[in-house]
Design a protein around this nucleic acid. Sequence first.
DNA 1: ACCTTCATTGGACAGAGTTG
DNA 2: CAACTCTGTCCAATGAAGGT
Length: 403
Amino acid sequence: GDLSGPSPIPASVAGQTLGVVQGAKPPEPSYKDSLANPATQEKSTCGAWAIVADCSSGQHHFAKKLVCGKEWCPDCGQDNSAANKRRQARILPKLQQVARLGYFVIEFPDVYRHIGHRGEDPDLDGGKYVAGWCYSKADLRATTNTIVNVLAGERCGRRGRVGGYFGRGLGRWHWFGEKCPGKYNPHFNVLVDGGFLEPELLETIKADLRAALNVPDLIVHYSHFDKPGQIVQKARYVTRATFHNYDWNPYMADELYNFRNVRWWGSWSGPVVWELNEAEAEGEDVDGFQAVSCLQEGVCPDCGQPLKVLRYNHKTGKPVQWSRPVDSVYLDLWQAEEISGSGYYRIPHREWTGYNFSPGELLKLEEMEARKRAWVRVAAERAERERAVEAEYQAVLWRGLMN
DNA sequence: ACCTTCATTGGACAGAGTTG
DNA sequence: CAACTCTGTCCAATGAAGGT
């Protein structure tokens, strides 16, 4: 056995010891709520906490800062913020499977935008909710379904979707436009696997969308791209935040709580048809996307091995690869290096005794170290005993042979 | 994170339609 | 009619995304 070999590593250390340190615990009762609840308007705790993982080789270590991802967060709402980069990294492995990308923008004219209010003063008709398109979480979900059912086809048991126009695609809502800041302007961006459309086919699709949604003047734009750089640009554009200010529409901001904005359909297990560096050659900044995508999929970006499983979820039995949250000051102590503004970090590999731990941790680590030393001593003594016995045996043997 | 919610997937089932 | 396919609905298992 390798008694002096590589030592415990950050994630295991984080899981076992960091959490017990006084003051390093996330603030109770619910730090998650302060992170994630959009109704929470206090100052952001984005980046204050991080989680840690190791790859199974034990040689590569990573951390990920926890961010709220709210569009109106001063940090997360920025273009190319960590939250935005993570969204891009999440869809790029899919987009790398399409050679020709179609891009729909489906926009609702003014008159449709504020129908179906579900807040304090709901839009009611004889006590019943007015059905709208894009002014409540429920309506947005229904509208998204309708659009996907047109573009992808209706779902039909094991035969998948039938009657659609595009085998796969993904969509994401934008809530506000560029031209009139603060004017609610919901439009659904759809990226589809498909390029040029014959004009009459495009008109058919538009007519289908207008009929399905019952919006005869629905605004539909279509364009298409085949250069990797253009596709990456679309990924960035579609994933960007538009709801920059909570006060633009507090009602709608609250409606969007727990709204799943990215919607996709079709199979995405196909081959990659273009590489990120091709997009880079066309001037796109793709730094870190590969690594972040890997980490999001639970794979080490440096050696391709899966991230180390720390334990299994009691209820679901699923493997847990990321540690519980630790204070982000540890990233500095570990001299972690951020992966291109993504909020993911590489932690240099180092013997753990070289880390700068607080007294409480050192105590814990020293205990572990003492146990290890004790084990080494016992093992060495046993080896020595066995060696002595063997030597004695040999000696007796030789004496017997000599005589 | 790790729990919850929601969409997707694909099997079971059944009535309608088709074929010989 | 029997056997088969087509089509639609229902449902459980799976998996992704967002937040107590």
